[in-house]
């Protein structure tokens, strides 16, 4: 089971689902939905949060949320 947290910088993945139903709605409004392609750009200097490229823009979320999002590596 791969989650967004498992991606390394530069790796791409496609969202397949969620581990929890407690994820913030904002995440979905920003377009992080099943089927969406994401690229992990980098980690923040202290290792958290992470910088994702989703739908052409940069979105920053914490690892805590990232590990609730299931992806398949591309």
């Amino acid at each position: 089971m791969t989650t967004l947290r498992d991606l390394r910088p530069g790796e791409r993945g496609r969202v397949t689902g969620y581990v929890s139903d407690q994820l913030p709605p904002r995440l979905f409004e920003m377009g992080l939905l099943p089927g969406t392609e994401v690229e992990l750009i980098r980690l923040a200097p202290l290792g958290d949060p992470i910088d994702l490229k989703v739908r052409g823009f940069h979105l920053s979320i914490r690892k805590h949320e990232a590990e609730l999002i299931l992806v398949e590596r591309l």
């Binding site: 994820l23 913030p24 904002r26 949060p49 823009f57 920053s60 949320e65």
Partner: peptide, 12 residues
């Protein structure tokens, strides 16, 4: 308790 989530755009 835990701090809330953090979902932030990094604008160009």
């Amino acid at each position: 308790g835990e701090s809330a989530y953090f979902v932030m755009e990094l604008p160009p």
